[in-house]
């Protein structure tokens, strides 16, 4: 727990004149689990998407394992596959079978043979507990199963860091826990994780650090016990009051 995986220093981003991210400072140690929460529109997705270069930032420094990430395509390419991402809407490839969804990245960007990629894919399908759905199309699976396939697809790249952007928000309530269970296991295995979620039970269980964002700023950063027992700011108190009621 000593190496720094991701480092954001005074990161700022604008959409036109709209200031989405204001002086974001965030450090993620290797093996650390960081949970980001905050009201809708506060910039949580944008932070995560800046880390894996789906969005460009305009000011400040983002480093991945000590190397600065810039907007130039080489920098974008350097992290491709190293930083995995699980999306709210799964974003599985609908024209491919579950197995092919998992094998595409390892074969095309890691240069694995078909046999190696398939072995790896089956291994991770096992880990997310759907070994028997390999030949189905994503549309034939339930939402919870689809999201677990998406997690397995990320794992097949054997990334250094895994980002989650509200992975359970699009799921029916009864399917949330099957996805969270898989995520807890990943956390226990030592994966470095940055998770945007409002699942506070999950956060309490796995988070090393809680981050609260509002209006493009990181308002509070603290270990979970301190964060939940004694939030410092009123904004954070109000927010926690609202979501813990449910």
């Amino acid at each position: 727990m000593s190496e720094i995986a991701i480092e954001m220093i005074d990161v700022n981003k604008w959409y036109g004149t709209f200031h989405v991210l204001k002086n974001i400072n965030l450090t993620v140690q290797s093996g650390e689990k960081v949970v980001i929460c905050g009201p809708s529109g506060s910039g949580k997705s944008t932070v995560v998407r800046c880390i894996n270069r789906l969005e460009e930032h305009q000011k400040g420094i983002i480093r991945f394992e000590g190397n600065e990430l810039t907007n130039d395509p080489k920098s974008v390419a350097s992290i491709q596959g190293e930083i995995g991402m699980v999306f709210q809407q799964f974003n599985l490839f609908p024209h491919l079978s579950v197995l092919d969804n998992l094998m595409l990245g390892p074969m095309k960007s890691r240069g694995l043979s078909r046999a190696q990629a398939e072995e790896r894919a089956r291994h991770y399908l096992d880990r997310v507990r759907i070994p028997d759905q390999a030949d189905k199309r994503p549309s034939q699976l339930s939402g919870g199963q689809q999201q677990r396939v998406a997690i397995a697809r990320s794992l097949c790249m054997e990334p250094k860091v895994l980002l989650f952007d509200e992975p359970t928000s699009a799921l029916d309530p009864e399917m949330i826990s099957e996805v969270l269970d898989v995520m807890v296991e990943l956390a226990q295995d030592g994966m470095t994780m940055v998770v945007v979620t409002h699942e506070m039970g999950f956060a309490r269980k796995v988070a090393d650090k809680m981050v609260f964002m509002d209006e493009g700023e990181i308002v509070e950063q603290a270990p979970p016990t301190q964060f939940f027992e004694a939030p410092e700011t009123n904004r954070c108190k109000t927010f926690l009051g609202q979501i813990l009621q449910h």
Binding site: L54, Q80, G81, N91, G105, S109, A150, S154
Partner: peptide, 13 residues
């Protein structure tokens, strides 16, 4: 757009 984003995150150029 999610499709090309997902492709990018699994390392495709």
């Amino acid at each position: 757009r999610g499709q090309s984003e997902a492709a990018q995150t699994v390392g495709l150029n």
